[in-house]
Amino acid sequence: MNFIKATKMKFLILILLLVVLSGCTDAKVSNQNVSSSSNLKVHFLDVGQADSILIQFPNGETALIDGGNREDGGFVVGYIKKIGINKINYIIATHPHEDHIGGLPEVIKNFDIGKVYMPNKTSNTKIFENLLKEIKNKGLKITRAKGGLSIIDTDDLKFTIIAPNSEKYDETNEYSIVNKLIYKNTSFIFTGDAERDSEEEMIKLGYNLKADVLKVGHHGGRTSTNYEFLKRVNPRFAVISVGKDNDYGHPHKEVLERLNRMGIKVFRTDELGTIIAASDGHKIDFNKDVANNNMVKNKKDNKIFYIGNKKTKVYHVPTCKSLPKQENRVIFHSREEAEKAGYKPHKNCIE
């Protein structure tokens, strides 16, 4: 009997050791399908040559960092509604350029909003006026963003502002709000369009910049993601929000070379469409089969074809600035296919 009891006791001790050890894994970053058990999700929305990032926090709250261009408002609203969100707890307008705040007035009109964070930088543009108007219409107040300001601060979840850190900059991009998100053993940095001056300030002020995922600054522009800043972040993965064949040549080859030299895996919205990262606090999973919301590629020759508008019966090249809303799009693999279906070419982008 004593032998049986001793055997049982050894077995119980072994089980307890396995349970304890299983809870002590280091953070890992993998490139697998997004798991339904993940409780933090970061959506890098495909808004072309613009920025919009939706965050679903494990505490049930949500944040939206930027809203793309003006014409992206409907897409951003539709995307958020489709995944069942009716309240955005934190709106973060990184800086007052149209490709970052353009869709936010539409978002504010359509959702219950908690807090709005903006830098101490104004603009005389119509879209900036519209944003302020919608904020006022909802009875919201603007919280001025500055480095060191905490948005969420719990043991397992921290969402903070680490820039801007000065009152005056020569470039509007430098006013960009930069956020760091930590969930247990995983972390992200979202940089807006912050450039060299802001990056150097963050280094000088001693912020802990280490992160697993970096949202590359200014769509991959050469004046952002400078080498010293990149070394401090030392990410495993980088996400670039950028439009295909854009007029700026983004992402610049210098930035891609910096990322490549450090062995950082790069995800680009112009190549992959909307990119989703999910974290259980110990590992980060990226969706492998990301859908390209704007284009369809031929698997054989990798060419991009035509996007038709179901309402106007007009077809466009994928880089056209007058593309229809997502729900009105139809894909054609050739001009002949489009015209057989009764569609006419768009005069500005094709003829």
Rank of each mutant, 00 (worst) to 15 (best):
F3R: 14
K10L: 11
I13V: 12
V19N: 00
C24A: 15
T25Y: 09
T25D: 09
D26P: 03
S38L: 13
V42S: 08
A50I: 04
L54C: 14
F57V: 05
E61W: 00
G67A: 03
D72T: 07
V76N: 02
K82F: 02
N86S: 15
N89S: 15
I91A: 13
I91E: 13
P96E: 13
H97T: 11
D99F: 05
G102C: 01
G102L: 02
G103L: 08
P105E: 06
E106T: 15
E106N: 13
I108T: 11
K109E: 15
N110T: 10
N110Y: 07
N110I: 03
D112L: 10
K115D: 15
K115W: 05
Y117M: 09
P119Y: 14
K121Q: 12
K126P: 10
E129T: 07
I142H: 07
G147R: 00
I152E: 13
D153C: 01
L157K: 09
K158A: 14
S166H: 10
D170H: 08
D170K: 14
D170I: 06
L181N: 06
Y183K: 09
K184D: 06
N185F: 01
F188C: 02
F190H: 02
F190S: 01
R196W: 08
I203W: 10
L205Q: 15
G206C: 11
D212N: 14
G217L: 07
G217S: 13
G217C: 04
R222A: 11
F229T: 09
N234Q: 04
A238P: 01
I240F: 12
S241L: 13
K244M: 08
K244L: 13
G249H: 12
H250S: 09
H250A: 05
V255L: 03
R258C: 04
N260E: 14
N260Y: 05
R261Y: 08
M262H: 03
G263F: 14
K265F: 09
V266A: 00
L272T: 11
L272A: 15
I275D: 04
A278G: 09
I284C: 03
N287H: 09
D289K: 13
I307C: 01
I307Q: 00
N309R: 02
T312E: 12
H316T: 02
Q326A: 11
Q326D: 11
E327S: 12
E337P: 01
K340G: 00
K344C: 01
K344D: 02
P345V: 05
P345N: 06
H346K: 02
C349P: 12
